[in-house]
Nucleic acid binder design. Structure first.
Length: 430
DNA sequence: TCTGGGGTCCTAGGACCC
DNA sequence: TCTGGGGTCCTAGGACCC
């Protein structure tokens, strides 16, 4: 079963503010560069859609209520609904605040006749409405995740569709290929060039044709889904793989110092969230969207995971040095991936995430390292060090350990073949 | 003043290792 | 003159989803 709450954020707003009922409500970014997250059906009548720029939504529906969103309220409503679903079956896979798959066979349900499923689903929709103060949900039920999801979309809002076993292909064949999850604008265009518009067209193509055009993974997935072949299980608990914070600014940023300040603040927010969930990660990334909407990312992987705001900020600022922000930057972001569900002992705050001490005492006079001008941390094959100073072709590195604090200081020739310059270009050391 | 923010998954190339 | 075949890890970018 797939359950989808209708126009979720907008519906919560209309529930909580009676004056908004029956009126167009648009929730999303309200600034000059905002987009629509969700809108009520009254707003959809004016052509407003999710992901549309708020600017355009205002032009189409100037009298709508434009709201920034109260995510606490949405989270609360979501928790209530997910709780009801978990009453039905232990196998509930939330996809977002307003959507979930439920494995009905893993729950108590034994009668899968259409009559019994209809009664069950209508009862569930009534329970959701009652427990949430009137929110409506659309439900789809089928023999796979794919079919359930397709079904829940067919009679939105406030609908219920059950696709009986054996009828999958006849339902899918006339539909546009983009009903298949994973087929977005780019794939639609490639398929169109192949002469594929509908699921039936897709089904007529061989596995070889599709994998050649779309790649192994995507091609095979489409070949299977076009035949309604889908055995993906409902997975109740999925672990997070990354944590990130990003922001688009009303006006493009042009000052590097300001960008560094933004990254530093975002690193703090990322670290807070990591710490709240007991997570830490090895790979620190930044995302930079330039004035022309081109997006670049840079990342760097540490020898061991961190959840330290200072460490993440230091790395993020260092990564920015490798990006040319000429023309202005509209978005900046910081992320941490390669998550581990444990945190290293943090004896010295920001600088305590040293290598295991056993690797440090014997600091070699030569080592492989990554360093570039402006970077104040060096990762080596023997451990981590802080750049103490750099000049006259020499890099001085101070090593620290959690046990002893500041450790030995060593100098390395910057042109030493074993002190490998980090990309992209050999650094000019002045 | 076109085009959010939080994610996931995939691909491709290079370094490196045996 | 000719230079394998697996595998892993890392980085960058892109497509996609809600």
């Amino acid at each position: 079963m797939h359950l989808d709450l209708d126009a979720f954020y907008a519906s919560v707003e209309q529930r909580d503010k009676p004056s908004l009922r029956g009126k167009p409500v648009i929730v999303g970014g309200t600034g000059g560069r905002g987009v629509v997250a969700t809108c009520s059906y009254e707003a959809r009548a004016f052509g407003v859609r999710s992901a549309m720029s708020t600017r355009e939504a205002r032009a189409r529906c100037p009298h709508a209520a434009f709201l920034g969103g109260r995510f606490h309220a949405y989270g609360e409503a979501s928790r209530i609904v997910m709780g009801i679903l978990r009453d039905v079956s232990p196998l509930v896979e939330p996809l977002s605040l307003d959507e979930a798959f439920v494995d009905l066979a893993a729950g108590g349900l034994t009668d899968f006749s259409t009559t019994a499923l209809t009664a069950f689903a209508e009862g569930l929709r009534a329970r959701v409405a009652e427990a949430t103060g009137g929110l409506t949900a659309s439900i789809g039920i089928g023999t796979s995740k794919f079919m359930a999801k397709v079904a829940s979309d067919l009679q939105k809002p406030d609908g219920l569709v059950i696709v009986e076993p054996g009828r999958e292909q006849q339902l899918l064949r006339p539909m546009a290929a983009k009903v298949i999850p994973g087929v977005g604008p780019a794939t639609v265009e490639r398929l169109r060039r192949m002469g594929v518009q509908t699921v039936a067209d897709l089904e007529s193509r061989t596995l070889e044709e599709l994998t050649l055009e779309l790649g192994q993974s995507h091609g095979q997935s489409l070949w299977r889904l076009a035949r309604a072949l889908d055995d993906r299980p409902v997975i109740a608990e999925r672990e997070a793989k990354s944590v990130s914070v990003e922001g688009t600014y009303e006006e493009d940023l042009t000052d590097r110092k300001l960008m560094e300040a933004v990254l530093t603040r975002q690193a703090g927010q990322v670290a807070d969230r990591l710490q709240k969930h007991g997570l830490s990660g090895r790979t620190i990334s930044i995302k930079v969207r330039l004035y022309d909407f081109t997006t670049v990312s840079r990342s760097s992987t540490l020898p061991s995971p961190t959840d330290s705001a200072a460490m993440i900020a230091r790395l993020a600022r260092g990564l920015l040095a490798d990006v040319d922000p000429t023309g202005g930057v509209r978005l900046l972001g910081v992320g941490v991936s390669g998550l581990a569900d444990w945190v290293q002992d943090d004896l010295f705050g920001a600088v305590a995430e040293a290598e295991p001490e056993a690797e440090l005492p014997d600091v070699p006079s030569r080592m492989r390292a990554q360093w570039w001008p402006g970077q104040d941390v060096v990762h080596t094959d023997r451990g981590r060090g802080w750049v103490w100073g750099a000049g006259k072709g020499v890099v001085t590195v101070r090593f620290e350990t959690a046990e002893t604090g500041p450790g030995p200081v060593r100098s390395y020739r910057a042109d030493d073949p074993d002190l490998v310059p980090w990309k992209p270009e050999p650094p000019e050391v002045s």
